[in-house]
Simulated scan of single mutants.
Amino acid sequence: MDDMKAWYQSKTVWGALIAVGSSLLQIKGIELSADMQADLANIAVTLAGVAGGLLAISGRLRAATGIRGK
């Protein structure tokens, strides 16, 4: 595995979290279809990517040192 990504960019991780959440909801009498779970996983990965990008931009803007081109 040469390609690495953050845990929040993994559809597998989000799918597992949503599956656990779905199981907990089922205990309360609320059921999510497999399609809805897949859609939620895709949305979560997209939102996590957006949040990561915004965090990186925010960190760069607040950094104490600048960056230099060539």
Rank of each mutant, 00 (worst) to 15 (best):
M1K: 10
M1F: 14
D2G: 09
D2V: 07
D3I: 08
M4S: 14
W7C: 11
W7Q: 15
W7P: 10
Y8W: 12
Y8I: 09
Y8S: 08
Q9G: 04
Q9R: 09
S10V: 00
V13Q: 02
G15E: 02
G15H: 03
L17P: 04
I18R: 00
I18C: 03
A19L: 06
G21E: 06
S22F: 03
L24P: 00
L25A: 08
I27M: 01
K28V: 08
G29W: 02
I30S: 04
E31D: 12
L32R: 03
L32Q: 00
S33I: 02
A34C: 07
A34E: 15
D35V: 05
D35G: 07
D35I: 00
M36W: 08
Q37G: 02
Q37M: 04
Q37W: 01
A38K: 06
L40F: 06
N42K: 11
I43G: 05
A44S: 06
V45C: 06
V45W: 01
T46D: 13
L47M: 08
A48V: 03
G49R: 00
G49A: 07
V50A: 09
A51F: 01
G52S: 06
G52V: 08
G53M: 02
G53E: 07
G53F: 03
L54A: 00
L55W: 08
L55A: 08
L55Y: 08
A56M: 14
A56H: 08
I57P: 01
I57K: 05
I57A: 10
S58Q: 10
S58L: 12
S58G: 13
R60W: 11
L61F: 04
L61Y: 02
R62P: 06
A63D: 06
A64P: 11
A64S: 12
G66L: 13
G66T: 11
I67W: 12
R68K: 13
G69D: 12
G69E: 11
G69C: 10
K70I: 09
